[in-house]
Design a protein around this nucleic acid. Structure first.
Lengths: 152, 152
DNA sequence: CTGCATAATTGAAAAATTTTCTGTTAAAAA
DNA sequence: TTTTTAACAGAAAATTTTTCAATTATGCAG
């Protein structure tokens, strides 16, 4: 699907605040409420808009400690990779896991309460997954920028 | 603020799908619509819920190429740090920027169209920021897991 | 344990929003 | 130019959010 300027503005607005009413959007876009409604439906149907979510402040729910873990596997057989990926996905502390190029195979984002919780996570959860060769963790000192919005 | 089981379920549901109606939520939680409404309002007022957003599929908007950039500064004077952080924040390709511990100072998540666009980003945007000592980039091969939901 | 104050819950009414519908206009294709 | 299709607008219908008044639960001081 291809976007005109109105679509781009609309997507931008919805990425900032999905609770805006169609009337508010229609004002911002100089369109009728129905036109906005139909455009949004189209964005949903074509899968441009994946879903609508509430974003939670992590410090309000005791998950202010963020770690980035680089992980290397011992082997890269299909079975090992699939198993590793499944087990990592099932860890609730892991919010993101990317297979990446470079020295390490994976990059994980891990959210926990504090360093102690992270230690516990490493010892009893992460390193208990088999076939992990080595890990290297970095800790977030400050979140300079973090947006879910993609600019287009 | 402190959460009971209902709050936790509610937060979990809203993190998955913020478009659920209060009636649907009230069914799932065995509560009245108003009770759900009041609980949500409280979560918003206390800042637990930061905001509501639409999540876009990056491959649908030509931003399927994801890079993680490690960056080291030449110096760490207050001025340099502040300036770097401001300029990086202003780059639309950078969706995330974390000040981190370890060998490098920052970790960036960069969204662009393809490798060529990334090259252009590096040459004309990122490295044109002063006081960058060195960079090390990794490229996403596959997104194994990526959720905005924090489990609690 | 009792009474008071506060907080949470409920159902119903009111207000606002979403969704549908019909017809019109604009744009693209024949 | 004519035909077809897509996008748009306004109004009605359906649904949802929000407010309101009253009730029930909860915590605390006496």
């Amino acid at each position: 699907m291809q976007f005109d300027l109105i679509d781009k503005k609309l997507i931008s607005l919805l990425q900032k605040d999905s609770k805006k009413t169609n009337k508010e959007l229609s004002n911002a876009l100089n369109l009728s409420v129905t036109a906005v409604y139909e455009r949004i439906k189209k964005l949903e149907k074509t899968g441009v808009i994946d879903k609508y979510v509430a974003l939670i402040k992590k410090d309000k729910v005791n998950k202010a400690f963020v770690a980035f873990c680089h992980i290397k596997l011992t082997q890269h057989t299909h079975d090992y990779v699939v198993k590793f990926e499944r087990e990592v996905t099932n860890l609730e502390e892991v919010t993101e896991c990317y297979h990446i190029s470079g020295d390490y195979d994976y990059l994980l984002k891990v959210l926990v309460k504090d360093m102690e919780a992270f230690r516990e996570f490493m010892v009893s959860k992460l390193t208990s997954i088999n076939h992990i060769g080595s890990t290297h963790s970095m800790f977030m000192i400050n979140e300079v920028k973090h947006t879910t919005a993609i600019s287009l």
